[in-house]
Amino acid sequence: MDTYSIFRQIADSWVLLAMFMFFVGTVLWVFRPGSRELHKDAAQAPFRNDQPATDGETRGAYHKEARQ
């Protein structure tokens, strides 16, 4: 048997099984109990340093320039 056939058989069986187990493990890790707060915190990360725009500042000036 040549090297290609040996590696092909390994890839078709054991590597496929290992990748499937990695996928199942990742899904179980993401949906584990207690991870909800971590996911909420990560989802809000881009907005942590945002300052709310006031009515006469940047937003209004941008819209005035866009209309002209």
Rank of each mutant, 00 (worst) to 15 (best):
M1N: 02
M1H: 00
M1P: 04
M1K: 01
M1T: 00
D2H: 01
T3P: 07
Y4V: 03
Y4N: 09
S5D: 08
S5T: 15
S5E: 06
S5W: 00
S5V: 11
S5P: 04
I6K: 07
I6S: 05
F7L: 05
F7V: 10
R8D: 09
R8M: 02
R8S: 13
Q9T: 14
Q9P: 09
Q9K: 10
I10L: 11
I10N: 06
A11Q: 06
D12P: 08
D12T: 11
S13Q: 12
S13V: 10
V15H: 02
V15I: 09
L16E: 15
L16I: 14
L16D: 09
L17M: 13
A18Q: 12
M19S: 14
M19V: 12
M19G: 14
M19D: 00
F20G: 12
M21E: 13
F22I: 14
F22A: 15
F23L: 09
F23C: 12
F23S: 07
V24T: 07
V24E: 01
V24Y: 07
G25H: 06
T26P: 01
V27A: 07
V27L: 11
V27I: 09
L28C: 06
L28M: 03
W29F: 11
W29I: 03
V30S: 07
R32F: 11
R32C: 00
P33H: 05
G34W: 09
S35T: 12
R36A: 04
E37K: 06
H39T: 08
K40I: 03
K40S: 02
K40G: 02
K40Y: 02
D41Y: 03
D41W: 12
D41V: 13
A42H: 11
A43I: 12
A43Y: 13
Q44T: 15
A45T: 08
A45E: 11
P46A: 01
P46V: 11
P46T: 05
P46Y: 00
F47E: 08
F47C: 13
R48I: 12
R48A: 15
N49L: 02
D50A: 15
Q51R: 11
Q51S: 13
P52F: 10
D55E: 10
D55A: 10
D55V: 07
T58A: 14
R59C: 04
G60S: 06
G60I: 00
A61Q: 14
Y62M: 10
H63T: 04
H63W: 15
E65A: 02
A66Q: 02
A66E: 08
Q68K: 00
Q68H: 01
Q68E: 01
Q68C: 00
